[in-house]
Design a protein around this nucleic acid. Structure first.
Lengths: 115, 115
DNA sequence: CAAAGATACCTTGACAGGCGATGTACCGTG
DNA sequence: CACGGTACATCGCCTGTCAAGGTATCTTTG
């Protein structure tokens, strides 16, 4: 993994919710999807993923149900709730804001702030 | 402060180093500059700022010296080192990478990853 | 001149999210 | 039947952030 986790910190829930917008999914698949989308540059650690699910479920952003797999390991599917959609919209807006702020702050300006 | 600190987390050192590229500076001024640049949308908390200075100095990215103010409170000035410049370049590159990754991951695609 | 506010630095302790390590259980393949 | 893949889950540590508190100096204001 090439990206420092502190840079992703705080985005875990956004990433999960964004994935659940298009379809119900389960932990293992979400993680595989992330690895796929980022060409292996990033993956959520399992512990991170499952604690995020707990938080999201507690806050009412997602609900879960067990899949009815005939074979293989059981899967706990997650579904985004209306409240979760609102949360996602807010998180995405915050990301846009934060992105601009950070871009501004890491730019090496020649005009320093005069006191 | 309108932006969740978890979104900025991990960028504190980058922000500080970026500021020190153009001029030596001290804690209070850096914080004021950040507030100014972001139009009050963001500020570093003092405790965060000073612990970041400690980390950066320990890692050799910055050095410090006391200013010789004739009046007013004493100021500890910080200066970026050659090593710090290398660090900053790396941190900025990581930010660019992370930004793209997160943009990719929070995008609500219609084409989910097929297992 | 006393009080208040701005400048400027610093430390302590708590908190929260990420994650390494570890465990469970099922399935297919060689 | 051992091994690797699928899939979920928990515990305890680590690290960065920050509220709260403290020190000291200077300027402004009533």
């Amino acid at each position: 993994m090439s990206i420092a986790s502190d840079l992703i910190r705080g985005h875990t829930e956004t990433i999960i919710l964004a994935h659940l917008i298009s379809q119900d999914s389960y932990g293992y698949e979400i993680n595989k999807a992330i690895q796929h989308k980022t060409a292996g540059q990033y993956e959520l650690k399992e512990a991170t993923l499952y604690t995020a699910f707990r938080r999201l479920e507690e806050s009412g952003a997602i609900t879960s149900y067990w899949g009815d797999e005939k074979s293989g390991a059981r899967r706990r599917y997650y579904q985004i709730t209306p409240r979760g959609r609102v949360t996602l919209a807010r998180l995405k807006a915050e990301w846009e804001t934060a992105k601009e702020l950070i871009d501004t702050l890491v730019a090496e300006e020649d005009a320093p702030y005069a006191n």
